[in-house]
Structures are given as C-alpha cells and as structure tokens.
Design a protein around this nucleic acid. Structure first.
Lengths: 165, 165
DNA sequence: TCTATTAAGGATATCAAATATCCGTAATAA
DNA sequence: TTATTACGGATATTTGATATCCTTAATAGA
C-alpha cells in the first residue's frame, strides 16, 4: 500500500507556492523542472488541486498557479485528499456466508445494520491518520522549513522562484 | 491507495481462529470456503501470518492453522504489517535540484542529514495510524463482536466451526 | 507401511491501477 | 496576432495486486 507519487509532488508544489509573493504565479513547466518530474503528469495533480479549490490557475503568458487561500488555511489533509481521494484505505467487502462480522455496505442484504467490527477498527485508524494530516497547515510547514533547512538552501530556492516570477 | 484484500481476509481468519478451542486447527480450505475467497491465494496470506509468528500451521490430516499466541497478545497492527509490510504509505523520493525540502534517504548525496520536513509530517501521520491499529487486540475484537453482533449469527458461526474441528 | 491430507513455497498467468504521453480547445497577456 | 498557458479527453506503458498451478515434505490415521 503506497500513496501515489503525485501526492508527494503536490505537497512540494504547494510548499513552493506558499512561498510566493501575492498575485504571482508559477506555471506547470517550471514546477516540473524544479522537481524533475514529467510536466504532463504533474499537470494532472495540479488540476486535481485546482478542482479542490486549493490552487487556482490563470491562463496565458505569465500565467500559472498560485494558492487559492492563505497557507494557514490549507492542511496536508486537504492536499492529500485532493490527489488521493477520500476513500478509506480499508475497504470492507461483503465477506459471505457464516462470518459473524458482517459488512455495513448493504445492511439490508446482510440483515443487520451494524457495521463490521473489524472494519470499524480499521476505519478508526484511518480517521487517526487523517486527523494527524489535518493538524498541519502549509504555514506551519514553512516555519518548520526555516528551522530545519540550512539557510543557503532556502536562499537558493528563493532566488530560483524570484527568477521565474 | 488501498490495502490489499488479503489484509481483510487475514483479519477475518484471525478473528475466527481466536474463537477456536485450544489445540484445535482449521485448514486453509475451510477458511477459504467460510469467507468465499480463493483458497490458493488466501494461503499466501496465511503463510505471511505464519512467518510473522502470528499463526502456526500443522501438517497432515486434521492439521491446519491456529493462533501462535493468546488473542490478547495479537494486535491489528501485527496482522496488518504481516500481510502489508512495514513500509510507510508515504515514500520520500529524492526530489531534485533546487527544492529546499531534501530527502533523508541519502543524506550524504543531499549534503544534509536532516529529514525532509514534508516527509516527517507524512511519517508522523503514518505513525498515528499504526499506533491506532496497535491499540486493539484480537481479544478486544471478540468482546466487541459479542456486544454488536446478533447472538444467532455468533451461534451459527460457532456451530460451523464446531462442525469442522 | 500405505494413503490421504495438509502447509509451504516456487513459478507463472491475469487483471487493475498507477504512471506517463499525446493531442485538441479555449483563454489571455504581450 | 502570436506565443503561452490551464484544462481535459484519449490512450499507451508499467507496475503491483490478484489468482492459479505445481512440486515437495510432513503427518495423522487406516
């Protein structure tokens, strides 16, 4: 079980966009070159972010993407769910016959409206995962970066961004 | 991102085995029929559980599987990790060039031993997921089943198990 | 001893999803 | 008018999950 690599790309792109000045944009092409990933495929991830209202794109020359809301109002969970979807990592299929732990998918068919006890444990863990991701915003990530990443590296990136906007 | 269906099968099989009397066994064939899943493929999951020391198999007629330890000493995490592996759902690839958030995979190559800040957030969420799974044992599941599953269903299963052992 | 049963595991086939590429359309700044 | 860009549809490629087949060795029971 592994998250799509688009999740990693989306998180890094958002981190970069969070450091952008107001009303400035970065096009897919630059973001792809920065991270060394295929432009066309990264574009799909950015489109997902756009549809989720996390980033917004503007057309034409000097267009590109920027955050659609303040970095403090965007959590990791928002980004992960935009790319990866909201379905739990555990899917309870209707396991048949004698098994006492019925699924909750079709209570009528199962003759029991109570959710599968095993599924409930798995879903609770999924909830804990999402709660953890929902507890960190892009703004807090930026603070962490300042503390843990060597200054020269940050300046290098800042200069790179500056040169493109 | 989705867990393998083998995880669900393994959890249900362990739940059944937890209700078994001491020194009794259930073969793969019966477990597969009970759940309505392919025997050969379920066998792979049971082998993984066996290698992890969660169940133990005995050969020959009247052989099969049983739990290798008390149900109170087996957590959901044990079972999930036996089948799904221990690698985090988030993999931090070395994203190249100017990006300030370096990977922690090859600090030497990155010239920086600090782990990627984005990866740390994702890994923390993964840790929360595993902690949640590690907080529930098979014994506790059995208690939940007694409370939430209608008695006739439990009796039906008990009778089924009884007929096979 | 013989036979049926079983776990274990290697090899391989099948299928679904992730990954990646290509192309057309419409909008827009210069 | 032109170059640039987001957006989205269609499709190819690759990878991993799913599934099947077969052999081997152990073991209980006849």
């Amino acid at each position: 079980m592994q998250l799509k690599n688009q999740v990693e790309w989306a998180l890094h792109c958002c981190a970069i966009l969070a450091g952008l000045g107001p009303d400035r944009h970065l096009p897919t092409k630059d973001l792809a070159e920065l991270h060394g990933v295929p432009k066309e495929y990264l574009s799909k991830a950015l489109q997902a972010l756009s549809q989720a209202g996390i980033v917004e794109g503007t057309l034409g020359p000097s267009g590109g993407y920027r955050l659609a809301r303040p970095a403090g109002a965007i959590t990791f969970l928002n980004i992960v769910e935009a790319v990866e979807g909201r379905q739990s990592s555990f899917v309870c299929t209707e396991i048949r016959k004698n098994n006492p732990c019925r699924g909750s998918m079709s209570p009528a068919a199962a003759g029991d409206s109570r959710p599968c006890a095993i599924a409930r444990v798995m879903w609770e863990a999924d909830r804990a995962w999402r709660a953890s991701l929902d507890g960190v915003t892009l703004a807090e990530l930026a603070k962490t970066l300042e503390k843990t990443v060597p200054a020269p590296l940050l300046k290098k990136t800042a200069a790179w961004v500056e040169a493109r906007t």
